[in-house]
Design a binder for these strands. Structure first.
Lengths: 147, 147
DNA sequence: CAGAATAGCGTGCGCGCCGCACGCATACGT
DNA sequence: ACGTATGCGTGCGGCGCGCACGCTATTCTG
C-alpha cells in the first residue's frame, strides 16, 4: 500500500530531524576540529565548497538562512582563518566569500569523516542495497517533497 | 566504491537538514491547522502519539530536548486543547502528558497530510523502489550512524 | 512513626541565534 | 552630475533553549 510507504518515510524523517540527532552528529564530526566550526558554521563551509566563491546573498538560500546570518557565521569562520573575504572585481560593493586553503582542507576532512562514519554504519548492508539507497536518497532530496 | 556511497548520502543529508527545508515543510503541513501547532510543537504531538501518555521527562529524549523545553511546548499545546495534563495515579507528583481527542485527530491529520505529500512526490517512482527506499531509510535511521 | 533525603515537575534567568530595519558605500540610469 | 537602486554589515527586538531553583510528593532510615 502506497500510503504505508509514505507514512514509513514520514516517521523516519521525523526521527532524523530531531534536534539532538543533528547536534550529536555534528558534535562528533567537529571533535578535535577547533572551536570555530560547529553545527552552525559547517553548512556555510560545505555550501561554499559546493558553490565556489560567492556573495553572502547568493549563499543564503543554499544554507537556508538570512543574509545576515550567513554574514555572521562567515565572520566567525573568517576570524578562524577558514574563510576569506575578497572584493568582487566586477562590483566593488559586493564581497565574495571564499574558502582559504585551511578552510578547503577542513571541509574536505569533515566530509571525509562524515563519509567514513556513514560507510562504517553501512558495513553490514549488502553493497547493492547501500548503493540503491544512496541513489534513492539523492533523488528524494533533489526532486522530493521539498521544493 | 563504498566511500562514494557514504559521500553521496552525506551530501544528501546536508541538504535535507537545511533549516529552511524543515521550516518550509512544517509550514506547509501546518497550514490551516491553527497557530498552536508549528514546526516546534509538532514533534511533541508526534512523539506523544508514538509513546502514548508519558511524563515530560520520558518524552524529552524522544523529542531530543530538555525537560523544560518539552514542558513549554506541551503547555502551548495544552492551551490549544490538543494535549491534556493528568496526574499520574501511581505517583501524584508526576504529571502525565496525553493527547486529547482533538490532539489525536490533529496528529493523525498531519501524518496523513505528510504521508500524502511524500507519496505524491514518489508517484513517478517504481513501487518496489519506493518500498525498498522506505525500508532502507528506516533501517538507516534506527541503527545508522546516529546512536 | 517521624524526619531526612530523593525524585519529579514547572518556572525565572541568562545566553545565543535569527530575521528585520537601518546606515553606509558603490553602481546604474537619465 | 545627481537621484535612484543594489549590496553588505550591524543594532535591535524576539524567541527558544539549557541550567538552576523552589515546591510538592515519595521513599528511605533510625
Amino acid at each position: 500500500m502506497e500510503t504505508e510507504v509514505g507514512r514509513e518515510i514520514a516517521d523516519a524523517l521525523g526521527v532524523l530531524l530531531k534536534r539532538s540527532t543533528r547536534q550529536e552528529l555534528h558534535r562528533a564530526l567537529t571533535v578535535d576540529m577547533g572551536e570555530a566550526v560547529d553545527e552552525l558554521t559547517y553548512p556555510v563551509l560545505s555550501g561554499l565548497e559546493r558553490t565556489g566563491p560567492c556573495s553572502a546573498a547568493d549563499l543564503a538560500p543554499e544554507v537556508g538562512l538570512d543574509r545576515s546570518g550567513v554574514t555572521r557565521r562567515a565572520s566567525r569562520l573568517e576570524e578562524a582563518g577558514l574563510v576569506r573575504r575578497e572584493a568582487d572585481p566586477s562590483d566593488r560593493r559586493a564581497t565574495l566569500l571564499a574558502l582559504t586553503d585551511a578552510g578547503q582542507c577542513t571541509v574536505q576532512m569533515l566530509r571525509e569523516r562524515l563519509s567514513a562514519r556513514i560507510t562504517a554504519s553501512l558495513a553490514s548492508w549488502p553493497a547493492d542495497e547501500a548503493e540503491a539507497f544512496a541513489n534513492s536518497l539523492r533523488r528524494f532530496v533533489t526532486d522530493g517533497p521539498f521544493a
